[in-house]
Design a protein around this nucleic acid. Structure first.
Lengths: 341, 341
DNA sequence: CTGAAAGCGCTTACAG
DNA sequence: CTGAAAGCGCTTACAG
C-alpha cells in the first residue's frame, strides 16, 4: 500500500538507516544526502508505519481515557482538554466508557489495553482501594477525581470537600436554613459523591443546621428532576446538587411545581458545564479549572511513562472557583449571556 | 515486560505456531496440547502484543472519529454511540478534534493517521467536494452529515432539507408569520447549515412569507445569544435555530429582554440534545436517531475496511422525529421531566 | 495436528 | 557521516 523505508532508500540510492536518520531528524546527515532523501520521501509520499515503529520501540503513542460516559457534559468538556493536552506531547487518545460499572473499571485496570496504549487516565467510580492496590498490570496510570485512599496511583482532582463546604457556606450566608443535598450514591466508593457529602455535612454541623440527603444512582438530569420531586416534601429553601446536571433537573422540577428559583428554593451545582451559564436561571456552581486538570493529568502520566516509575504516588489538587449566579442570587446574578468570568 | 508467544511455547513445550493457534481459537488442536498451552498462557498472564499483530496483519483494530469539537453536546452524544457501535465489532476509537478548521480536516483526509487506524469517520465542515474528490489517501472513509455532492465517500445523515422544512411548517402551522432562521454560516461548505437553510427557504417560499437570516461563526450558546440580540430588532414571532445550542442561547436572550417564549417568540432547534429536554421552556427540536446514525456509520466503514472498496459510494439517510415541546407549544408542551418519547 | 522459517517495517547498537 | 545486520512479536504459507 504505502512506501516503506526500503523503497525510499532504493529510490534515493542510500541505505535504510540513512533514510531513518532523515525521517527522525537526526543531525549529522550531509546536506547533499539529506536533499536526495527528502526528494525521494516526498515523491513516494512516505508515511512511517507506526505499528512497526511501536513494535520496535515498545511505545504506541496512544493513551486511553476511561470515564463513565462521554455524553455527560462535564466529561465531554474534560475530554476535550485532555485530547488537546495529549496532542501537545504527541499522543493520541482512545476513549473508553465504563458506565461506572465495576467490571469495566476492573478490566481497564487489569490491562485490557496493555500493549495498545502507553498509559491510562481513569475516572473511577466503583473500584475500591483494595483492588487498586492489588493491581498487577503495570501500565502507567493516573486517576481523575477524588483520592482513593492509600491507592498506589497518581491522581488529580479539585479539593471536593473544601469546594462542597464553600457552596454550603454560600447558601448559609444567603440566610438559607433548610439546605438539602442531592446526589449521594450507594455504589460510589471512589467517585466524587463521598467528599462532597462530607463537605456539606461539615458546614451544616458547624452551624448546627439539620441535614437532608437525597440519593441518586446516576448523575443525570432525569435523576435530579425525580429526586427533587421527592425532596420537595421536606420543603427545603436551598439544594446543593452534587453536579450541574442534577441541578438543572432539580430546577426544572421546582419551576414546574410553581415555585421560584431562588426566591423559594436556591439551587447550586458542581462542574460549571456550559449549560448552566445559559440556563434560566443561570446556575451557581463550582468551576474546576478543567484545562489545568487535564494538563496535570497528562503531565503526571508523561512522567510515569518516561520511566519515573519509582516516584511515590502524587496527589495534586487543581484550582476551582465558586461561580455565583441567578439560581442562588436571583436578579443580581449573571447578565443575559451568562457569567463568563 | 510481558510474556511473548515464545515464552509461552517454551513453557508449554510446543512450537510458537501451536500457541498462536490456541490464542487465535483455531480448531484442530488436540485437547491435550490445548490444555498444556492454556495452562502456560494463564501462568504467564500472556497478552498478545498488538503492535506486532498489527504489523503482520496490516490492521490496527482502531478507527478515528474526527469531529469539530467533542464538547458540543450533539457530538458528545453521537460519539458515545459510535464508540459503543465500534466496540461491538471489536474496534477502539481515537477521537480527533478539527475545530472545523479546513487545515485539520485536510490533514485527517490526507492520512495523518494512516497506518495508525483502519478507517475514519469524519464530520466535515469546511472541506469541499473538489478536495474530497482529489483525495489520494485510501484509508476507508465514512462522512457524517450532509452529502458532499459528487464526493467519492459513503456518508450518513438525516435528510436535513426535509427536517428543516418540517420545523418551518410546524411554526407556520402555529400561526407564526415572521419566522427568522438563525445559524447560516459563511465558512461551512459541507456542514449542515446549507441544507437546513434551503429547507427553511423552501417552506417560506411556498407560503409566500419573508425570510430573515442570521449568520453565526460557530454553533454555540454564546453565538446564539448574541445573534438573537441583533435579530430582536426585526421583531420575529418565531426563530428556527440550526442547532439546539443556538436555540438555548437565543432563548436566554429573549427571556432576558422581557419577552416570553413561545407567546412572543417561538423557538425551535435541531439535534435533540439532552439539555433541551430539561430547559425552561423545554425545546422543540428535530431528533435524529443518533444510535441509528452511529450504527450505519460503523457498518458502512466495516464494509469498506473489509475490502468492498469497489462498491459505489453510498448515501444513507437516518430517521428523525420532530419533537414539539414548550418552546413552540407553550404549556401544552412536555411534562415536568421533559418529553422522552 | 504440529513445526521451522520467513517476513511485516521499523530502530538500534555496531562497524567502518 | 553512512551501511549491513539483528531483532521487536507476531502470523502465514509451506512442509511433514
Amino acid at each position: 500500500m504505502g512506501a516503506s523505508l526500503r523503497d525510499v532508500a532504493r529510490l534515493a540510492g542510500v541505505s535504510v538507516k540513512t533514510v531513518s536518520n532523515v525521517v527522525n531528524g537526526y543531525a549529522h546527515v550531509s546536506p547533499a544526502t539529506r536533499a536526495k532523501v527528502e526528494h525521494a520521501l516526498s515523491q513516494l509520499d512516505y508515511r512511517p508505519n507506526l505499528s512497526a515503529r511501536n513494535l520496535r520501540q515498545g511505545r504506541t503513542g496512544v493513551i486511553a481515557l476511561a470515564l463513565p460516559e462521554l455524553d455527560a457534559p462535564y466529561f465531554a468538556e474534560l475530554s476535550r482538554f485532555i485530547i488537546d493536552a495529549a496532542a501537545e506531547v504527541g499522543w493520541l487518545v482512545i476513549i473508553e466508557q465504563t458506565g461506572g460499572s465495576l467490571d469495566r473499571e476492573r478490566q481497564v485496570l487489569d490491562g485490557v489495553r496493555r500493549h495498545r496504549v502507553d498509559g491510562l487516565i481513569l475516572s473511577p467510580i466503583a473500584i475500591g482501594a483494595d483492588e487498586l492496590a492489588a493491581r498487577t498490570d503495570d501500565t502507567a496510570l493516573v486517576l481523575l477525581g477524588e483520592r482513593i485512599h492509600g491507592g498506589p496511583a497518581d491522581h488529580v482532582a479539585v479539593d471536593n470537600v473544601r469546594a462542597a463546604r464553600d457552596v454550603t457556606e454560600h447558601l448559609i450566608g444567603l440566610g438559607r436554613r433548610r439546605i438539602a443535598a442531592l446526589g449521594a450514591q450507594d455504589n460510589s466508593i471512589s467517585g466524587t459523591a463521598p467528599p462532597r457529602l462530607a463537605g456539606y455535612r461539615e458546614s451544616l454541623a458547624a452551624h448546627a443546621l439539620p441535614e437532608t440527603v437525597a440519593k441518586v444512582d446516576r448523575y443525570r438530569r432525569a435523576e435530579g428532576a425525580a429526586a427533587m420531586a421527592a425532596l420537595l416534601e421536606a420543603r427545603p429553601d436551598a439544594v446543593f446538587c452534587f453536579n450541574d446536571l442534577l441541578a438543572l433537573g432539580a430546577i426544572r422540577t421546582i419551576l414546574a411545581a410553581g415555585l421560584r428559583v431562588p426566591e423559594d428554593v436556591a439551587v447550586a451545582g458542581f462542574d460549571d458545564i456550559e449549560d448552566g451559564r445559559f440556563s434560566t436561571p443561570t446556575l451557581t456552581t463550582v468551576a474546576p479549572d478543567k484545562a489545568q486538570l487535564a494538563g496535570i493529568a497528562v503531565d503526571l502520566l508523561k512522567q510515569r511513562i518516561e520511566g519515573r516509575t519509582d516516584r511515590p504516588p502524587r496527589e495534586v489538587h487543581a484550582t476551582y472557583r465558586l461561580m455565583t449566579r441567578e439560581s442562588t442570587l436571583g436578579g443580581r446574578g449573571g447578565g443575559a449571556a451568562g457569567d463568563q468570568a
